[in-house]
Nucleic acid binder design. Structure first.
Length: 457
RNA sequence: GGCCCGUUCGUCUAGUGGCCUAGGACGUCGCCCUUUCAAGGCGAAGAUCACCGGUCCGAAUCCGGUACGGGCUACCA
């Protein structure tokens, strides 16, 4: 077999969707695990909806995640696969034929078939048009579409192939019926274009979402009719919404890869998370890097059933990788922006308490912003606050060790329990029931600010 | 309607005829640690393996059917 080569073929009609990333991840892991190549083919033929910024978003997202491709991205629009030449070839060989039925006629036919409880399929009537009929259609000014012939001469009774994930799959060509490959306006349909593109790009393994499973028999026959080598096919389980209702859609949080990045997620976490959707590590490892996924990837371990997105698990993984030291640049940048030269001091306090970078604002905002008005749990909070306010100006030097020592002294003489005492100070200073370790917080706030907050409360 | 695919704790999954009184992870709950919240440690609850039948000494695992879900059945991709 020639060298393995896979492709990812996103359309730049929107930001790169996390479902596409999942497919690309599996393509990538498979290809890299056998030393193969990955190509990026931008399917930008939908001129109405394409935007150049989405091309950038796609490249940006994949690069961020470490899902690299070989060579330059190919743009479907910029090359001239001669689709019509191949269509011509199929016409000549009798593998395809011109069909003069209008969309309205086909629609009516379909409805009539359905009404009779029959399978709605094209009759194949135009396979053999009499010269008179042909003349009549032409006289009417009809433009033909091109249909691929699924049955008859040279066609198997049964289309069988080994899916990399699903194993042996069988189809009866009779059930599929002749389908259009070139529209009457000469534009090309997906099933046809895809075969020619993949062949032109020397793709050896087509790995895509499960929804393409039933496209496969059509494409296999096109490959054969054109005399192309048929690639291997592997179909991946779809990703469902968190409630398992339907395919992943935008309604549920961020669906675009770069939106996950904006929300503070780490590439390591996204990769690990997506990798555990529909695939499992052979040693049962719950945490794995892209490299580890590559080295242990096999289609045997790819699941056949769809998986729902579980954002809580993503958060867990993100927190894990954050603590492991992933993506320090983004974290450090955020800390520096918020806390300036105190960033290094705040970081260790924060790292165990957040699951993503954007959680910092809610948790540590009080260190740089005015806190909300606290609701004290301890009824005699005034006593605690005044005792503390009295002591604070005398604490010197203003270090957390010294602050702790001094305030513990005050507490022990106060007849207030340590919990009530220190939680009250924490609440006064942070305006919240949740705050970073108290003495560190006070040190960072500074003597003056601490006093101000105690007195105001 | 026809064809194709799927169905193990709430979620992601392990499992390829006996090691399964079904394992792990997230989440949930409890305990420890602790001035709060986390992190960490320990523990608990949670799955009649969709259902029904069959094969077998023995089935989550093999076979058949049913139900449910998804896909295709387009001059969509």
């Amino acid at each position: 077999m020639s060298k393995v080569r896979v492709r990812q073929a996103p359309s730049p009609t929107g930001k790169l969707h996390i479902g596409n990333v999942h497919t690309f991840l599996f393509n990538y892991c498979f290809a890299r695990s056998v030393g193969g190549e990955v190509m990026l083919r931008i399917e930008d033929t939908d001129q109405a909806r394409n935007k150049p910024e989405y091309v950038e978003d796609i490249k940006d997202a994949l690069t961020w995640l470490g899902l690299t491709w070989d060579g330059e991205p190919e743009f479907q629009s910029k090359r001239h696969n001669n689709y019509s030449e191949f269509a011509e070839q199929l016409l000549k060989s009798g593998d395809a034929y011109q069909c003069y039925h209008s969309a309205e006629e086909l629609d009516a036919e379909r409805k009539a078939q359905e009404a009779k409880g029959q399978a709605p399929r094209y009759s194949g009537e135009c396979r053999q048009l009499s010269p008179e009929q042909l003349e009549k259609y032409r006289a009417e000014g009809r433009k033909p579409a091109i249909r691929f012939r699924m049955t008859g001469e040279g066609r198997p009774k049964e289309i069988t192939y080994q899916d990399l994930v699903y194993g042996q799959i069988k189809y009866d060509p009779e059930d599929i019926g002749d389908f259009v490959i070139v529209r009457s306006d000469n534009s090309i349909l997906y099933n046809f274009a895809n075969v020619i593109d993949d062949h032109g790009d020397h793709i050896t393994h087509v790995i895509r979402g499960q929804s393409h499973l039933t496209n496969t028999p059509r494409q296999i026959l096109i490959y054969q009719a054109l005399g192309f080598d048929v690639p291997e096919f592997g179909h991946l389980p779809e990703i469902l919404n968190p409630d398992r209702v339907g395919k992943l859609s935008k309604r549920y949080g961020a669906a675009a890869a770069t939106e996950f990045r904006a929300k503070g997620y780490l590439p390591e976490a996204i990769v690990n998370f997506l990798g555990s959707l529909g695939w499992s590590h052979p040693q049962g490892q719950e945490f794995f890097t892209l490299g580890e996924m590559v080295s242990s990837f096999s289609f045997e371990r790819v699941s056949k059933s769809p998986a729902a997105l579980d954002l809580e698990k993503l958060d867990f993984l993100n927190a894990h990788y954050l603590r492991q030291g992933g993506n320090q640049e983004a974290l450090d940048a955020k800390l520096a922006q918020m806390f300036g030269d105190k960033a290094a001091q705040v970081k260790p306090l924060l790292i165990d308490r957040i699951s993503k970078i954007t959680d910092i604002d809610a948790l540590a905002g009080y260190l740089i912003n005015d806190p909300a008005k606290p609701k004290f749990k301890f009824s005699d909070f005034n006593k605690v606050l005044s005792l503390t306010a009295l002591k604070v100006p005398k604490i010197d030097p203003w270090t957390k060790e010294n602050i702790e020592k001094s305030l513990r002294e005050v507490q022990s003489k106060s007849e207030v329990g340590p919990k009530d005492f220190f939680v009250t100070i924490g609440q006064a200073v942070s305006g919240s029931d949740i705050f970073l370790p108290l003495f560190d917080s006070l040190e960072i706030l500074g003597q003056e600010e601490t006093l101000k907050r105690l007195q105001r409360s």
